[in-house]
Every structure is written in structure tokens, then in C-alpha cells.
Amino acid sequence: MPDKIAIEKKVLSENDLLAQELRTKFQENKVFVFNLVSSPGSGKTSLLEKTLGLLQDKLNIALVVGDVQTENDADRLIQAGGKLVRPIVTGGSCHLDANMIHKSIQQFNLNEIDLFVIENVGNLVCPSSYDLGEDMKIVLISTTEGDDKPLKYPGMFRKSSVMVVNKTDLLGFSDFELHKVKENARQINGQLEIFELSCRTGEGLDTWIDWLLEQVILKKKEI
């Protein structure tokens, strides 16, 4: 007869531990950190380009950008004026993990940073399991995807604190309905903060920027 041995161990406990370490470090330096996730091509890099353009003069912003293969997104953010941009080429991995963030922050002086942004790999499944030490996950969805996305990827929408609906300039060119995506998302996560915007026309960006600034300021006031 084999013996039954209780293990009771989280599979990702190593990642969770390291993420907690990161969180403490960010906290000590009063840096607001968000982990931006979406399907491929929803507009994560576009939103960050716009954000840089509008907040650059007010805040010190660091960005780490995950990509499976290229450094294109990091190059775009440097083009957009980003001074502290680091690519993480995952070489096949479908998500960023805490260890990758840990390595990338060695290159930064957290003390001088107000806002730390992580652009995750375009994927609504895997990144949801990996804590990166962020204050919150922000999930982006564009109007060229289905408005039932939240129902198809409940894990990610549940774990996010904010949903940004991008590409509102394209509303009307598909069956995507704003009120439906909001309904679907709120059913999974009633506490979701929701923004609607277009990175192309700039519509709605001001509300997003105001909110983001507020988060950075709130973070500074935390003890």
C-alpha cells in the first residue's frame, strides 16, 4: 500500500513569493504599478504611446514591454518619448513572470520613478495566473473583438481592476455593443472601473489620464 503524503503547496508559490517581494519594493518607493493585459493587437502599445505623450512632462514613467519575439513595441515607446523603456523578449513564453520583472528592475532606480508600467504579452489566458507585484491588472479590449470576450476569459476580467475599451472610433463597423461589453464584464466583476476611448482620435483619453494621475498621487500619499 502506498502512503498518502499531504503536500498542500501552491504550484506558483515561487512566483508568488517573488511577486510579493517586488510589491514591497514598489511600495517602499511609492511607485504605482499596473500590469496591462489584452488579446494581441487590442492596442496596449498604442495606449502607452498616448499616455507617454500626455504624462511625460509630469511624471517619471518606466515601462517594461513583454513580447514573444521582437523588440518592436519597446522601440515604439522610445519613439513616443519613453526614457526608461526595457523590452523583455520571452522567447516563446506566453506570459511575463515575476522573475523577468525582477531582472528588469535592476536597471532602474525605483526611487526616481512615479509610474511603472508593464505591457504583458498579448494573451488573455496565461498572464492571469502570474502575479508580477503590480498594484492592479488593467485589461484592454477593443471594439473589433467580440463584446462577449469577458465571458470567454472570465479569469482575466475577474482579476483585473480596470477595463479599458479601446477603438471606440470603430464602433458601428461591427456588432460590438458598448453596453453589452460592460454588462458582460460587470457580471464577472461588479467592481470594475471602465474607460472608453480611442487611441486613434484621442476621444476619452483625458478621463483615463486624469484617473491615472490620481492613482499615482494616491500612491505617493500612502504610508
Binding site: P2, I7, E8, K10, V11, R158, G190
Partner: peptide
């Protein structure tokens, strides 16, 4: 709709038989 999740996020090894 203000709900705390108590179960559903588990990803753990419960036990082994050896």
C-alpha cells in the same frame, strides 16, 4: 455585485501517494 471570491483560484498540489 460586490463579491469576494473564496474558491476557484486554486492551483495547488494537495497530496501524493508514494
Amino acid at each position: 455585485n460586490d463579491i469576494k471570491m473564496s474558491h476557484g483560484n486554486e492551483l495547488e498540489i494537495a497530496y501524493i501517494e508514494a
